[in-house]
Each structure stands twice: as C-alpha cells, then as structure tokens.
Design a binder for these strands. Structure first.
Lengths: 336, 336
DNA sequence: TTGTACGCGTTATCAC
DNA sequence: GTGATAACGCGTACAA
C-alpha cells in the first residue's frame, strides 16, 4: 500500500507538503494550487489510502466505537447496534461489534480487546446478570479502565460505575399494564424473564405495581428466557392449563412474538383469545400487529453514538417510552 | 494509558526486555524468571494494555475483519455477521461491521474506511444490484484495491473480481419447488424479488426450471421487495384476488414470515389455506413452523471468517443447501 | 509557500 | 539474558 512518502516522492514535494495538500492542513500553512494538484494526482495514481493505525498512533486516538452486545441477532440489540453504527458512521467512526452471549468472561475479553484497539468509546448494550460468576470481576475491570480514561457508556443497568443512558423500564412495564387495564382486562399475566437481569426485573416491577394498584394479583410466567422459543412454550403451557389469562404482557417483543406463534400453532388468534403486548418496539412484531411499548431503540442508539463519540459533555437522558397500539390487543371496552 | 516504556521504567528494565517478558518473545531471547515477574507485576500495577494501532504499524497488519452488509437487522445478514464475528473472534480478530442499505455509494465509503483501517480482510455479504448507479464504480474500486493486495471475499454474486464463497441459489429455489411438487402441489407461485439482485434472480431461475419441467406455468409475484412487509402485502393482494395458489415459494424467510403474517391477519392458516416455504434457514420462521431451504448461514459465515483471516489458500466452497421441512407446508399427499 | 525532524508505541535486529 | 536502536506511516512544531 502506498505511503505518504511515496506520494511525496512522486509529486516531488516533502511529506509535510503532501500531508497538508491532502488534509486541507492547518491554518497558516497554505499549499499552492499547482502543488495541490500534483499531490492529488500522485495520490490518485498510486491509489493512496491513509493509514488509520498510523494516524491513531500519532493522534493518540482512533475513530473506532466499540459495541458490546449479547447477541446481534436479537432484534433488541440488532436495532441498537444498527443505529449506533449508522450514527457513528455519520460522525466518521467505524464500529466494532462484539457478541458476548451475556457471558461475563466474553464481555471481559471483548472489552479488553476494544481497549487494545484504543476505541474512542465503548458501549455496553444490555444489562448484566446479578450474581453470575464473573459479573463482579468484569465490573472491577471496567471501573479500573474508566478510572484510566476509557470512555464507557451503558445502555442498561450495570454493576460497574460508568455513564448510563437507560430507558425507564419500570414505566414501560407499568404503563403497558395500565393500558391493558384500561381496555378492561383484569386477569393479566406477565410472560418471560431471565432471573438476575435488572432491566427485566424493573419491567416486572412496573407490571406488578400497576396490577396491585388495580387490586389484582400479579402472575409471572415463563421465567426460563427471553426468546421466541420461550414465549411459545410458555403459551403452550398456558393453553394446556386450565385458566387462561385475559391478556399477557411480555418481557420483550421476542417473547411476545413467541406467544403469537404459540396461538397461531394452536389455530388461535389475538386479541380474540387473549390480548398480547410486548416491550421494545422492535420491528419483529410489526407484521403481526403486535401492540408494544416502544423503547425508541433507534433514537437511543443515535443518542448513545453521539455521546460516546463526543469529547465533552454529560450523558444525555434516554428517550421516553411510547405506547404503540396495534391489533394484538383488543379494542377498548367498558370495564366490566 | 500506560506504555511499554513506563512498564520498563517501573520494572527497571529496557523496553525490549519488557516487550519480551510480556509476549513470550521470540526464540533465542529468553527472559529470566525474576525479570518476567517484575515486568508482569509492573504491567498489572499500571493496568497496561498493549496498543493495537502501534502493533499494527509495526507489523504492517491488523487483526481486524471488515464486514459489509446491507442491514444487520435483516436476519440473513445478521446471521452471517454474527457467525463471522464469532469465528473471527476465536481466531483473535475483531470485526468492524458496516450497514450500507445496499447503496453502492455507502458501500464504497465503508470499503474505503475499512481499507484505511488496514483490515486484514473484507467480506461483502450480499449481492449488488445490477444496473444501479454506482455499482460499476464500486466494482472498479474494489478491483483496484484487490490488485493492490486488499483481501476481499464476496458471499454472493458481485460485479467485481474477488474471491467468492456463494451458495447454490438455483438449487435452493429448484429443490424447494420440487419438494412442493412432490407434496402434490401444482399451482405454486413465487413471492418476492428485488429486480437486479442476482442472488434472488437465481432462486427464481431454479423455481422456474422446476415448474416448467413439471409442465406448469411459473408465476412470480410481489416483486417490490424482500421484507416481511412486502410479503404481507403480497399475500394481502393474493387474498383479495380471485385465484389463490396451492403453495408459495418465498424469495427469503422474511417474505415467508410476511406471508404467514398476512394469513394470520386474515384469520387463515398454513398449510390449510396454502403451503408456505422460505429460503434462508434463518431463525425467524422457526416458531411458526416455517418450512425453508436452509442456506447454512452459520456455517457459511464460519468458513468465510476462516478464509478471510488466513494468509494463504484457495477459497473454500460454500456449504450445500438443506431442506428443512416443518409444518407450514402440508404433509405428503398423492398426486392428483 | 515549502521543508526538516521528531515522536506516537511496538517489535525485530544487532550488539554485548 | 539483556540493552540500545531503527523503523513502521503520519502530522505538526519549528525553520527557512
């Protein structure tokens, strides 16, 4: 690959001039039109591409953003990673993604790798699992890195002390439940959980508070996971049992789609059989008319990208949650 | 961030020794146990993290893999990006992803950026659009870069000359169609297309050949896109029309899920109303029992990652396609 | 308006 | 076993 020196030689100028000609260079150091042209043409001729590593070394900073995610295939994280990448790209940054499968060991490893690459900032997308082996150690290392100047932002509750941009999970669970209550539903179950995951715990808290305030008894099912599969199997168990709830609030959209699939597989339909609602606002449920509490992930990712690539400033607040009513919940009916 | 020099000073050794102590160093340059320990402890004390940019400069190569993708949220690309990232990670590489929205201009930009970062290799996941403005120019630039030594591999038909690892799209479309014929279906439509996209064109070719060989007349619908949305709307039009096919082969799993959603929204069901099959083998259709032609994307991504990170060797061949029969297609019935 | 020279952090080469 | 040093490619302070 051609270097600046080769360009300079070909254009018969010094490397300094070549650099200035190509970069517009600092004030006080103009380059004559003629030389500009010579340098540009030399660069084009040799197919010159500046070396980011060399620049990084010289400038002591890179234009790399790191994104640590549990699984890019989960639409929640996919949506986040995507909007971060797009906005970061607009700002001249490239994005390194890391799938960690929620394994603290993997997270540590990828975090360290990102630090080696001198990422300008690192975004943790999901929350960690309380009590999981390795969570504490990861937290210690992140804390140490932050103390050393590594920029870190978390988009969910985390056990380390870094900047946070976190949506209001309690409100998401609460307001969605209230909406279902307003529709006249009384027997509302919550489906999906991953014990120890703070973000889901908070959604359950919001649900529980709303149910309790309405004089009902909260019921949480399907604590085995947050996937479509777990949603479908939870629905299967529900259908096999005796008492079917009026409506279900799902821990996330994936679980909700799984619930819809469970109904579909049984030849049933929402909202006739029961109302179904998700949390997240990802596009997975769109075509099935899934009512959901949007967490405005596109906006969140944008905000996060802007913050992590900026040098100064306090972390912005997360966008508010927004109820998206579609057809998987029944239309309004007077309270019975 | 601590540098090797600081470690060396703290451990009272030279930078050369510090480097050797931390890297296991080259043969012929042993480091005494005592010094090893001193250096390690100094590094730990200062929280030393080696600089990848500096190493890259020195070694004239990075451990970065670039992935150019149209949209990470599309499960097809998500699955690929994910498996590439995981396998590359195993091999000690980090992965920079780029969403280009199939825009050749964006692809050019991201490709150039990846070259600046001196990516060890760049993977193009999707195929380009024949005739789109910019496709030709991108092809020229990629060709030039490849000539200069940039390693590039394409996982779909492309207009530039680089290594390819491409699944057999014709077989995917053909064998899936034959399977539906075997089930007794006669009126089989194909849904979904993006005119100019070679990979889809080949799937249609396979479908057409199979239908024609069986004495039928091919019918391609919903040429407006490859999304769930386009699948759902195509299904909507079909339901509004007079003649419903026996079965539909969808351009990809996304379209197929859209078709399933279209049926669901109309209170209908597959395979009772008609059989539905997708192409891709992504997990989106799993919970709905979608029959699909798996393209073994996980395997493809692994193979691609291994190839692009290797220094030598010819490109491996793509994994074969594999029929996955689930419940969205009807059980075998004797030919009428 | 242009050129010279240094240093960013690392590792390989050569010396002791 | 260990140390000094050059070089990777770039941008900029300092000169001219």
């Amino acid at each position: 690959m051609a270097t600046l020196k080769e360009i300079a030689d070909l254009a018969s100028v010094s490397v300094a001039t070549a650099s200035r000609a190509l970069n517009g260079s600092a004030v006080g150091h103009p380059v004559s039109e003629a030389v500009q042209a010579r340098v540009r043409s030399a660069a084009a001729q040799l197919g010159y591409t500046p070396s980011a590593p060399a620049r990084a070394l010289r400038a002591r900073r890179t234009s790399i953003v790191g994104v640590i995610t549990s699984d890019i295939l989960d639409p929640y994280f996919g949506e986040l990673a995507r909007s971060i990448e797009i906005e970061a790209g607009r700002l001249g940054f490239v994005t390194i993604v890391a799938n960690t499968d929620r394994d603290p060991g993997q997270e540590r490893l990828k975090f360290e790798l990102l630090r080696e690459h001198r990422a300008a900032g690192i975004v943790f997308c999901g929350s960690d699992i309380d009590g999981a082996p390795g969570t504490a150690r990861l937290a210690r290392e992140v804390d140490a890195a932050v103390a050393q100047g590594t920029r870190v932002v978390a988009l969910a509750p985390r056990h380390f002390a870094a900047d946070r941009i976190v949506v209001d999970n309690v409100a998401a669970g609460g307001r969605l439940t209230e909406h279902l209550l307003d529709l006249g539903h009384r027997d509302i179950a919550f489906i999906g959980d991953l014990p120890g995951l703070a973000s889901i715990g908070l959604r359950i808290d919001g649900y529980t508070a709303a149910i309790t305030a309405a004089g009902g008894a909260p019921r949480v099912l399907g604590r085995g996971g947050l996937t479509q599969e777990s949603g479908r199997s939870a629905m299967g168990e529900l259908l096999a049992g005796s008492r079917l709830p009026d409506a279900v609030v799902c821990a996330n959209d994936e679980v909700a789609v799984g619930v819809v699939a469970g109904l579909w597989n049984a030849g049933l339909h929402a909202p006739e059989t029961l109302s179904v609602a998700g949390i997240g606002g990802t596009r997975v449920g769109e075509q099935f008319g899934l009512t959901t509490m949007s967490l405005e992930l596109g906006e969140l990712g944008m905000v996060a990208a802007r913050y992590i690539t900026s040098v100064e400033g306090a972390p912005p607040s997360a966008p508010g949650v927004r109820l998206v009513v579609r057809s998987s919940t029944r239309a309004w009916a007077p309270r019975r």
